[in-house]
Computed example of a mutant assay.
Amino acid sequence: MTIEGFAPAKVNLSLHVTGQRADGYHLLDSLVVFASVGDRLWLDKTDTMSMEISGPFANGVPTDARNLVWQAAELAGVKGHIQLEKNLPHGAGLGGGSADAAALLRSLFGQLVDDGIGLEGALSLGADVPVCIGSIPQRMHGIGDLLQAVQPMPRCHIVLVNPSVAVPTGAVFEGLEIKDNPAMDAFDGFEGVAALVGWLQSQRNDLEAPARAVAPVIGQVLDALDDALIARMSGSGSTCYGIYPDSAAADSAAARIRRAYNNWWVVSTQTAGQTPS
């Protein structure tokens, strides 16, 4: 039997770092959505573990126990041959290996972490794994262990841009000077794109400054998205997103950026949610 999974790109619309625990884990407060672009994987159950990687970003991805998908299968007590199609760039702030591991667990156990290996097990793979298992708009806080579904949430037309520069998450957090920043402003879902964008205007990504210190090109990416309703960096970078009023505007912006920067990864896509408004 073949198990198939889809790992949508995780987009942090906002990301506030609100503290750091004694054990070193950072406390986050983030509004997370998922795009319709992502990696794909297939698992054929066998008596042994093996893995192969394909796709435009296959180069450099481990095909052994270093891979989080492999680790997720072991954690779930499953063996087999895993095929992973890498369509998302590495070190991009889009979920990466955590999203891939979550896709496997979601395919095995369904939407809820507690139906499978438990929250603690999912967190052992990475702080982003629990939120990626749901793949729905969520508020993620704590160390990634506190999740709250966000409804209503409009479906957004977005452009994702990565300058083909990987940013190590550890280096970004090490460069964060202030650890105890204010949490996100209160919200109770968003009735439309205008309400969401209006709220985002006063939110932040606290990791943007240290990420730009590691990869100054992030500033150039944000400048390229200056015609968006709002543009921000996602996660720890280096991918940035821009929200556009409709698909035509998003497609046009993506085409313009591709022409100007033909070595960048540029995608016009949508996020999960209700009808745009």
Rank of each mutant, 00 (worst) to 15 (best):
G134Q: 13
G134L: 14
S135E: 14
S135I: 04
S135F: 03
S135L: 07
P137F: 02
Q138R: 13
R139V: 03
R139S: 04
M140L: 14
H141M: 13
H141D: 14
G142D: 10
G142T: 07
G142N: 11
G144L: 07
D145V: 09
D145C: 11
D145Q: 13
L146G: 05
L146K: 15
L146C: 10
L146Y: 12
L146A: 12
L147Q: 12
Q148P: 06
Q148V: 11
V150R: 00
V150W: 00
Q151A: 15
P152R: 04
P152D: 02
M153H: 08
M153I: 05
M153G: 01
M153R: 05
M153Q: 05
P154R: 06
P154K: 04
R155G: 14
R155Y: 01
R155C: 13
C156A: 06
C156W: 01
H157L: 03
V159F: 02
V159W: 02
L160T: 03
L160C: 09
V161C: 11
V161R: 04
V161N: 02
N162L: 03
N162F: 02
S164A: 14
S164Y: 00
S164T: 11
V165T: 08
A166G: 13
V167I: 13
V167R: 03
P168C: 08
T169L: 09
G170H: 06
G170A: 13
A171W: 01
V172N: 01
V172H: 05
